[in-house]
Design a protein around this nucleic acid. Structure first.
Lengths: 144, 144
DNA sequence: TTTATAAAGGATATATATATCCGTTTTGGT
DNA sequence: ACCAAAACGGATATATATATCCTTTATAAA
């Protein structure tokens, strides 16, 4: 459904959010390692998230990526929108251009329920929602 | 979720099934046109479906693709399996290797409901289920 | 038996997603 | 002012999905 890039982005945002109380800025290297994603590719994704103001960054020594309290309220759908766009929530289940509520394919109604369910997951969960319950001593990936 | 190829495959199978009463074999060219897919690529997909015995084919003059009554009972999940495999129904929503019922990610339970819903659509609908209500004078794509 | 037709299948091409590389810019410390 | 650290951004590389091309094989009809 969502792309691999988008999954990296969500993992990255959750990780950065989980570190908010430590008041340190995180490097690409650390983030990539913790979310199990390639470093250079993670850099691109983080840049994208920064441009979309989903996370913040500063350059130079002691620089890196971080979030503020306000970022914790951002729903995951914003990340999906930034990386993949929202058209995935409009596509027909069997790829028909013409498919719509007015002119539904045989699977349209069932499929619509599913799509809306996925949309709900991303809309109802925020970047900050899980940061508290995470990171209990082990690495991030093991903790989620 | 499922690939573009897989959507072509489902459209093709539904189309072929919709023609079962006409007792004609359908060419790649006709099928590709009707399902709005590229011809050579459709040929590959039809070969694949044939190998998996989801449809039948015969070579030579008056040859082509067709189904028999027994094929109409085949659930769409068989097509998904033939083209994409079933691993898509096991993937974690945020791409974690370790995610499972025992070690769920924060979205696991919600996401599982969704995945099972998609699985149900493909499991509960057969190739033949819609062939009757289709093809009321207009082209296939317009009819579904 | 020859010919025409249509699928089968291997090789190749293109598009897109994923991933890497490297020079540039910004910034903090000295 | 200088250096080092780190993100930024453009160019490039690789992998995968999608798409095409062409030769081979099977088959029906004449």
């Amino acid at each position: 459904m969502i792309s691999k890039s988008c999954k990296y982005a969500i993992r990255a945002a959750l990780y950065i959010a989980s570190k908010i109380d430590e008041k340190v800025k995180l490097s690409v290297k650390e983030i990539a390692f913790e979310i199990d994603a390639p470093e250079a590719f993670t850099a691109k994704i983080l840049q994208n998230l920064t441009r979309h103001k989903i996370i913040f960054s500063t350059k130079g020594p002691y620089g890196g990526f971080y979030v503020e309290q306000s970022n914790l309220k951002i729903p995951l759908i914003n990340i999906v929108n930034a990386i993949d766009g929202l058209s995935i929530f409009e596509d027909c289940g069997i790829g028909l251009q013409e498919c719509s509520d007015i002119h539904p394919c045989p699977f349209h109604n069932d499929y619509k329920v599913i799509r809306n369910g996925i949309l709900s997951i991303y809309t109802n969960n925020t970047i900050g929602k899980f940061s508290k319950e995470l990171m209990s001593g082990e690495t991030f990936l093991k903790s989620i």
